[in-house]
Write a protein that binds this DNA or RNA. Structure first.
Lengths: 365, 365
DNA sequence: GTAATTAAGTTAATCGTTTTACCAACTCTT
DNA sequence: AAGAGTTGGTAAAACGATTAACTTAATTAC
């Protein structure tokens, strides 16, 4: 480290680009030592404790000294070293947001919701994308736990997150968002009401005469998918219709995936008259493919998508969507995390209800 | 702090949910002391230095001790405290990404690019959105500078970022992305070639006979906008056409903003036959408004948008877009930051070229 | 006028690592 | 067999803040 060269404990004022820059130690070569609280204290002729008290308002200090210290702090543009502060205080005012991927605008909006609320409450946000890699997820959470963040909002990769028990037992605040593990009920979570989402969308199609409804999901074996399928089943049951496994198809949350899913679903079950599609990109791919197959929407195939992407209204035909409020989910998740941080016993499951936005693509307008 | 109660320096093994949890100190009530390196060392009958060397591979340790220590580490699921590590090493392996807002899929994609590269190189990412608040931006960068991150990727709010001089003089690694300040050339940056973007899009319209071309931008006085306007002007000059200020209109990067911009532009300059629109949401709003006005695209008004959003192809009519590669820009920016961290003298300006994706909306197919 | 209280500052311990400098015990050289 | 090198390990000093406990002086109480 270049600054280990026998430093003179003195602060130089050097001129640099029209402004004064204050540097500690030798100024020849690449020597840029950061100013510390000790330097401030020395210059103000007080102890470091006093400086700390002035900065944090933890003790009353006479106005004279207060002003003197503040002036020096300003002059040096001094900011307390976060690492030292974190170490001593055992807290970082930073939260971790661990998502498994950014498949669609839904997750993106949710991230912005979390970020917004964090900013409002003075927290920093460490964003991590595990890319659906469960080992990386566990590794990451371990790392974050080691004094990097005060708590974590996690949208887990898999439905099975047994490893979280360890952190719960250690009392490390974790809040689940969007996805969860039904076997771990005593962990707070904020999600959309996915059962209702599946139910409402399906009911809407059933009410308008559809009987063979395809269901294109993005990822298997996560609660968002499973709950929506359960809602879908419940609606079918309500109409005394049988549930057929072969009406389900996976689309991997991409445009191409959506197109391929439509292709295989329609070759397998050619009598399908409606589709419920779980992410915006898949919906776009599906519409593309349907047009390619010279079928018309909604005459030949009706469509309900999930998540109201901006272009829904100007697509031909405008797309009916069922939506959950990702931004609110994100904000709420952060608030829940704060509650959990402040009260280790806090456990609450929040489910936000869906809304149906009817447009032409479902033929029901 | 509840753990201040006269702790017994001993580690208990308690049973909890089928697994063993190891806790230091008293186990009654809410006492969860984290295991430290000292505990590991004590149990292994070695010094903390040895444990540290084993963990970091900084010195050769006999296999016997090595294994013993590793076993204990595993048993306790021990991870070194990051705050202490950061403090001692004066580095955090964390980068800050400061953006001014998330107006469109472009910025979002760029963020994912940065995140992806950070993950690949073992860095953590602190994401901050300044919400176009320049004071918050400066405050944030100050905070991050204080030992929270090793460097920053910044997409600044304003064109004028004089305050950065201070950090440059202090040798704190900052890389600009997307936007920059032309008055500060000696700071590395990664952007799209916005001049070329404006030039190419305009040229394409001019080539196909358009002479009165409206330009809807999102934010005034940032380089992305200014450079594209310059490209637009250059193309007009090439065709010996005059530049008219009144063909420019601001749209604030929202759907409604785009719609309003079209409205006011067309009332002011009713003879406009083509529009070049700078963000996806504005494009969507513009198309909505144009349909509302019973004009047809591209017959009455041709459109070129910026940024290829997924639904471009299935909108009616499919939208011609000029694109820059946000994902690559993000990735590249992170690589540049790494270079800057490793070599304080590194300065490079990287500009990535645009691509035109021709579809029906510009009438040129 | 003495004791008790308050106020303003300071001292020094502490947070949990990393890393330099040192030591003791071997192994080679010659 | 003495000196030089090497190897495996440790003690202790950082890193830069916060904060409990203490001091000293000034004020108030009785």
């Amino acid at each position: 480290m270049f600054w280990k060269i026998n430093c003179i404990e003195k602060i130089y004022t050097i001129k640099c680009r029209k402004r004064l820059i204050l540097v500690k130690g030798l100024t020849q070569g690449v020597v840029f030592l950061k100013i510390t609280m000790k330097d401030i204290a020395k210059e103000a002729n007080v102890s470091v404790a006093t400086v700390s008290h002035v900065i944090n308002g933890t003790k009353h200090i006479t106005e004279e000294k207060h002003n003197k210290i503040m002036k020096i702090i300003k002059k040096y543009n001094y900011i307390p070293n976060s690492a030292a502060k974190n170490l001593r205080q055992q807290t970082t005012k930073t939260a971790g947001l661990v998502v498994s991927s950014f498949p669609d605008t839904f997750v993106t909006e949710m991230v912005y919701g979390v970020e917004e609320r964090a900013r409002e409450t003075g927290y920093n946000l460490l964003l991590i994308n595990t890319n659906e890699d469960i080992e990386y997820e566990e590794k990451t959470i371990n790392l974050l736990h080691s004094q990097m963040v005060d708590g974590i909002i996690l949208s887990p990769t898999a439905k099975n997150i047994e490893y979280l028990h360890e952190f719960m037992d250690k009392n490390f605040p974790i809040v689940l968002v969007n996805r969860y593990d039904p076997n771990i009920p005593n962990i707070p979570r904020v999600t959309g009401d996915n059962f209702q989402t599946g139910y409402d969308a399906t009911m809407h199609l059933l009410k308008h005469g559809h009987k063979k409804i395809g269901f294109i999901y993005s990822v298997p074996d996560v609660t968002t998918t499973l709950d929506r399928i359960n809602g879908y089943k419940a609606a079918l049951t309500k109409y005394n219709l049988p549930f057929k496994e072969s009406y389900l198809e996976v689309g991997y949350a991409t445009v191409n995936g959506g197109a391929n899913a439509v292709q295989s679903l329609l070759t397998r079950e050619s009598d399908v008259t409606a589709l419920f599609i779980q992410t915006d990109l898949m919906t776009i791919g599906a519409i593309q493919k349907i047009k390619e197959l010279s079928l018309t929407i909604p005459k030949d195939i009706a469509i309900i998508g999930f998540g109201d992407f901006a272009s829904s209204e100007i697509i031909d035909p405008p797309v009916t969507n069922i939506v959950l409020p990702p931004h609110v989910i994100g904000r709420t998740a952060f608030d829940v995390l704060l509650s959990k941080i402040n009260n280790p016993d806090y456990v609450k499951h929040i489910e936000l209800p869906p809304t149906l936005l009817t447009r032409k693509s479902c033929g029901c307008i």
